[in-house]
């Protein structure tokens, strides 16, 4: 007897449940396409076209699995998640521990002009008012982008959030949280940036491709921030000044 089984909303999936990272519309498409592919594959096998038939069966099965479970290994490997992005934006999140008090890290970040010191894609951030600023960036492929931003939330020593305003080339918003780490470990800095790439579906597809790179870039950015705050400058392994 397994009385608890009936209460489960999902079928048993083994001990490690895979994370859902495929959005609902995409899951439906995956189910339909996967079923069609698998059926065609079955027909091929019936006609003794074994190799292409089996290949289609396997591919169809994978799409069905993706649709049924909402988990895609390929997306996971690429860092893509179409379930947890809102309004078709893309989210990148990274976290780093820095050996300073939350208030100190907050203060450095609160002066937004400091951001271009460690965020490689930012050329500059200029303060234009008490809560407003102008940002200049270089995107993938050397594309320039500029926008105005407004600070939405500012909780000293804890959190800052901002969003782009007006006609930004790439509308975006971001939040950074500063949390006291245990013991003498300093501050856990957690950054989440959402951006909304232009150009409709094609633009979004291209941005998804670049997403892995951007996510890596944010990680490198945070390491630079850590170096600047812990050591006082960004380090290099170069032998000569370049």
């Amino acid at each position: 007897m397994e009385p608890s089984e009936t209460k489960r909303s999902r079928p048993r999936q083994g001990l490690r449940q895979k994370r859902v990272n495929v959005g609902p519309a995409e899951r439906k498409a995956s189910m339909a396409g996967g079923a069609a592919l698998a059926l065609t594959g079955l027909r091929c096998v019936g006609k003794r076209n074994y190799l292409p038939g089996l290949a289609m069966l396997v591919a169809g099965g994978l799409f069905l699995y993706r649709g049924k479970t909402g988990h895609c290994d390929l997306y996971e490997a690429a860092g893509v998640d179409t379930m947890h992005t809102h309004n078709s934006g893309l989210r990148i999140e990274k976290v780093v521990t820095i050996g300073l008090a939350p208030q100190q890290v907050y203060q450095f970040w609160r002066n937004l002009e400091n951001l271009s010191k460690f965020m490689k894609h930012l050329e500059s951030v200029q303060l234009t008012g008490e809560r407003t600023s102008h940002w200049k960036a270089v995107g993938p492929g050397g594309l320039h982008a500029e926008w105005d931003a407004e600070m939405m939330e500012d909780t000293p020593g804890q959190q800052i959030s901002w969003h782009s305003v007006g006609s930004a080339d790439v509308p975006n918003k971001g939040t950074v949280e500063f949390r006291q780490a245990p013991g003498t470990r300093g501050t856990e800095v957690k950054v989440a940036i959402d951006y909304y790439p232009p150009g409709g579906a094609a633009g979004r597809a291209a941005a998804k491709m670049a997403h892995g790179i951007n996510s890596q870039q944010l990680e490198e950015d945070l390491k630079r921030l850590k170096q600047i705050l812990e050591i006082g400058e960004e380090i290099t392994s170069d032998r000569t000044k370049t």
Binding site: E233, I235, T236, R239, T240, K241
Partner: peptide
């Protein structure tokens, strides 16, 4: 090869 240079202050 080119001689090394001071790149960081430390």
């Amino acid at each position: 090869v080119p001689d090394p240079q001071v790149c960081n202050s430390g």
